[in-house]
């Protein structure tokens, strides 16, 4: 089972990895631990290192971009980010860290998408492929 969603590519790059869906806006400063590669979302610690994360948006400090950059330096960053409403803090963080950042161009239901295990950020086709198993870019 697969779902292919057309996407706006904000920061270029391909990625394929396990998908982690985070339902709440994330504050990079304070909630993203760049030493561990984890996000603390409403009391739940979620491993995001080398995964593709899907988040609704970012909240909190304007210093957050540096946290993403620190994660990249520490090799704990996600391999790709899908954001429903990317803002300057997230985009800047992804640009300086060179992490692919995609914005879906179709409406996405986070509940429905969270049943997929993998995601593939496909630059050639400007799309995101959500799947149950690993696919090939």
């Amino acid at each position: 089972m697969q779902r292919i969603v057309k996407a706006k590519i904000i920061v270029e790059g391909n990625a394929e990895s396990e998908l982690v869906v985070i339902r709440h806006p994330v504050s990079l400063l304070g909630e993203f631990n760049p030493n561990q590669g984890t996000i603390l979302s409403f009391g739940v610690k979620i491993v995001v290192k080398n995964k593709i994360i899907l988040i609704p948006s970012i909240r909190g400090s304007t210093v957050g971009s540096y946290v993403l950059y620190a994660a990249k330096e520490n090799n704990t960053a996600p391999s790709g980010i899908i954001a429903l409403s990317p803002d300057p803090i997230l985009i800047t963080g992804a640009v300086i860290s060179n992490i692919p950042l995609y914005q879906p161009l179709e409406k996405i239901n986070l509940e429905e998408i969270s049943k997929y295990n993998y995601a593939c950020l496909d630059q050639k086709n400007s799309s995101i492929v959500f799947s149950m198993n690993k696919t090939q870019i």
């Binding site: 304007t62 210093v63 971009s65 540096y66 620190a70 990249k72 330096e73 520490n74 300086i96």
Partner: peptide, 16 residues
Amino acid sequence: VSGISYYNIGEAGYKF
């Protein structure tokens, strides 16, 4: 410009 405290930006921000 924000992100000037070494406490907040750490070694990565310092290198940047």
